[in-house]
Simulated scan of single mutants.
Amino acid sequence: MGSIKMDELKRMEIDFCIKALRQSFDLCFRIGRDLVRLLQDLVHIPEFRDLWKDLLFDPTKFKFMGFNDFSDLYRLKTPSHYLSLRITPEMETQLRFLLTHVKWGSQKRYQQWFAKKHLNWPSSETLIPDIVRFVCCSHHPSNEIIQSNVISRWAVIGWLLKCCKRSYFEANAKLALFYDWLFFDEKVDNVMNVEPAMLLMVNSITQYAEITHTLMEFLFLLVDNYDAERREVIVRGALSAFDVMVRRGVVSSLEPLTSSELISPLLREKLSSFLSSSSGGVSIPSQEEESAENKC
């Protein structure tokens, strides 16, 4: 009896979502690029598969002048309050406490407590990508917090990635982490949304180089395969993200990623080649240049 009611509820949810997307797409469009990320996980459901095909090949069906191609959605940053709605109020309160008050060295017991409360039941891994998006886009610490010894967002995300036991959910969590990189536009996007991935890669090199390695590999996988028809949009977004983070001082340079011997030569070469493909090139100071800057 319970399973029948659950099936009925699922059917009602599907019908409601499809109706909203088809009849009120102008409102749904405001969700922005994360609408694409969420819908692509539902294409195994026939109704959503048909919707996806129409979005790709017949956008005029949605009768919204602002939507002619997926790139129109890609360009629209998802407002942070939408991402907050993807987790419960209790989870939001506890995450904000962790990222505002918990000091380095004390985070483990709080993380264990959070995991036991929210990530210890079947299918709880499905929550992790939404938590990652919340941390990246909805919780931006003040400069005072950033300069204190409060646990950093990048470290919490590193822990969340380790909580993924299955590769599918880990891939979704990494996609959530890098999603704004793919379409980054300095005019509309916030550097704080892309900062955690960069700092996680850079700060993991010394002790956890495998994390840096897998994240760099995944980023290149996204650039090459996420949307092959719109690859130039994604290349431009990723290059812009790298460039802005150097110019804004998130990292002093990209030299740790392009020169560290702890990272495979193939990946270092691929990153250097990718960065130099931009029209102006992304600045990668040499070790000598960095030393000179530090002396100044």
Rank of each mutant, 00 (worst) to 15 (best):
L222K: 05
K117P: 07
L275Y: 06
N193H: 14
H44W: 09
E210K: 08
A209G: 00
S3E: 14
D185E: 14
W52Q: 13
L254W: 11
D58I: 06
L85H: 06
R231G: 01
V102Y: 03
I146L: 15
E170T: 07
V43W: 02
R231Y: 03
T93V: 13
L21C: 06
T100I: 05
F169T: 04
V194K: 00
H118G: 05
E90I: 10
H81G: 04
T60W: 07
E217N: 12
V246K: 04
F114E: 00
R22Y: 09
S138I: 05
E293T: 09
L119M: 13
V102N: 07
L161K: 01
Y110M: 01
P141S: 04
G2L: 14
D189S: 15
S253N: 06
L219I: 11
T88G: 07
V135M: 02
F48I: 12
P59T: 06
F183P: 03
M65T: 07
R166L: 14
L76G: 02
E125H: 05
K116H: 08
K61R: 13
N68R: 13
D224K: 12
A292Y: 06
M201E: 04
A238H: 02
V102C: 05
L161G: 02
I45Q: 09
R30T: 15
Y226R: 03
S264R: 12
A176F: 02
L262P: 01
K162V: 08
S253A: 12
Q23V: 13
I234M: 08
A197T: 04
S80F: 11
R37C: 07
T258F: 00
L39C: 01
H44D: 13
L199R: 06
R96S: 07
I87F: 01
L98G: 09
K63F: 05
F16I: 07
P89L: 04
E293Y: 10
V132H: 00
Y226N: 02
E255L: 08
L51Y: 14
W121T: 15
A20D: 12
V250K: 11
D34M: 08
L182V: 06
L199H: 01
K61A: 08
T258L: 01
S253P: 02
M216N: 06
R33W: 03
V223I: 14
S272T: 15
F134V: 04
K187S: 15
